[in-house]
Nucleic acid binder design. Structure first.
Lengths: 210, 210
DNA sequence: GAATAATTGTTGCAAATGCAACATAAATAA
DNA sequence: TTATTTATGTTGCATTTGCAACAATTATTC
C-alpha cells in the first residue's frame, strides 16, 4: 500500500528531533516485545516479518497474528487478562520502530511537525490493521480445514495479483495460524491436489479452480 | 468503559453545527448498513445491539462481529473482496450515529470544536475495537468447542465482574459466533454441566471451576 | 562436509464435531 | 387466547479432525 509518505526520511527527522521514538534491529527468533499490562508501547514493523505468539494452557502454540512491513502491533491493542505470556517474535532479520502510544495524539513541547505526520500515518495503519483483523476473523470462522485453506489461498492470490504464490509461512506455522492440526492440514492439501483444485510444489501453490 | 465524554450532549451539538453527521433508529431485524465498496461510512452504536453478518457460499451464516453500546463499525474497516453480501442487522431497537470517515480527520469549514472532540473520542473507540477483534481471534483460535466455551464464559465473567452472567446472544447465535455446530455446542454445554464445571439455567451461566 | 535440527510428508486409529431429525419450551403474531 | 414461529434441548450416526508415530527431505550449525 502506498501512503504517500516517506517513512525512512520521516524516521530520521523524527529521531533527530524527538528522541521519544527509536528504532531497533532484531534477528531471527529474537523476542521483539513481550506484552506487559499498563505499559503502552506501539511498534511499527519497518522491515522483515514477525509473529504474535501465545502458548496456551494446553501447550498449544497459537499464532495470533502475523506481521510484515508496515504492520503495527503492541500492547495498546491488547487487553492483557491472562498470565500466559504473549510476545512478538522475529521470523527473520527485522527492523522495528518503537514509541509510546501517548506521543501520537499529544503534541511534543516543540510542537514539531513530525507528530502531526506520525499521527496521520498512524491512522492509516490503524485502519489497515482493523481490516486485516476482520479478514482473519472470517478466515478462522470457516468451518472446515478445506474452507480455511481455500479462503487463505484466495486472499494470497488477491494480494499477489496471481493464481500462483508462495505461502509466507512454513507449513508448520500456517497450521498454527489457521488453528488446525498440521498433519490434518497436510492431508487436506493432498486431497486438494488429488482433486485437481490446486497444484502444490513445496510451499508454492497454484489455484486451478475455486 | 468511561471516556470522560458526554456522547449525547456532543451529538446534539454536532448535529446542530455540522449537518454531516446524523442519527437514526432501527428496529429488530432491520438492516442498519449494507457494506458497499468505496463508500466510507462509519457508524457508532449509541443504543441497542447489532450483528455483522455474512452468508457464505455454503449457506452457513457467520456472525462476524457482535456490537453493543459504543461499538464502531462500517465499511472503512472492511475490505470488500467477495460478492457475498455483508450487512449489519439490529438485534433489538437500536440508535446509530452515521458519518463519513473523512470528517474525522479533516476540519470542517467552521473549524468547529466538535470535529476535534469526535476525533479524540474516535481514537479511543478504535483502540477498543482492535482489542475486541484480537480477543475474538484468540477465541476462534481455540481448538475445541469446550475451550471456546470456557474462554468465552471467562471473558463474560471478567466483563461482568461476576462468575454468573447471562449470555448476550441466543444460543443459536452464540454457535454462529463461535463458529461451531449448534447441537455440538449444546452437547458440550451439557457435558460441562454434568462434570460440575458450570451451572446453566437457560441462557444464564455460573462458572464453578475453570 | 558431516552432524544436527527443523520442516515436510504420510498413515492408522481414536476422539471430536457436524448433520439430521426430532421433542419440548418460549416468544411472537394473529 | 390460540396459532405460529423461533429457540432450546437431545440423540444416533457419518464424517472430519486431531493425535501419535514415523520416513524423507531440506536447513542450519559445528
Amino acid at each position: 500500500m502506498n501512503y504517500n509518505f516517506d517513512v525512512n526520511k520521516f524516521i530520521e527527522d523524527f529521531k533527530n528531533n524527538c528522541s521519544r521514538i527509536y528504532e531497533k534491529t532484531f534477528f531471527k527468533n529474537e523476542v521483539i516485545i513481550s506484552y506487559i499490562k499498563k505499559r503502552e508501547q506501539v511498534c511499527i514493523l519497518l522491515e522483515g516479518t514477525a509473529d504474535l505468539v501465545r502458548y496456551d494452557r494446553n501447550g498449544d502454540r497459537i499464532i495470533i497474528d502475523h506481521f510484515s512491513k508496515n504492520d503495527i502491533f503492541g500492547e495498546v491493542f491488547y487487553n492483557i487478562t491472562t498470565n500466559n505470556e504473549l510476545f512478538v517474535e522475529a521470523k527473520q532479520k527485522s527492523k522495528v520502530l518503537f514509541f509510546s502510544y501517548d506521543i501520537i495524539h499529544t503534541k511534543c513541547k516543540s510542537n514539531c511537525k513530525f507528530h502531526k505526520e506520525l499521527s496521520e500515518y498512524f491512522n492509516e495503519l490503524v485502519l489497515d490493521k482493523i481490516t486485516d483483523l476482520n479478514m482473519r476473523i472470517e478466515l478462522l470462522s470457516k468451518r472446515s480445514i478445506r474452507e480455511k485453506l481455500l479462503n487463505y489461498f484466495n486472499l494470497l492470490s488477491i494480494q499477489k495479483f496471481s493464481k500462483s504464490f508462495t505461502i509466507p509461512f512454513s507449513l508448520t506455522d500456517l497450521a498454527d495460524y489457521l488453528s488446525v492440526d498440521r498433519s490434518a492440514m497436510m492431508r487436506e492439501m493432498k486431497l486438494l491436489k488429488e482433486e485437481g483444485i490446486i497444484v502444490k510444489t513445496g510451499n508454492r501453490i497454484t489455484i486451478l479452480q475455486h
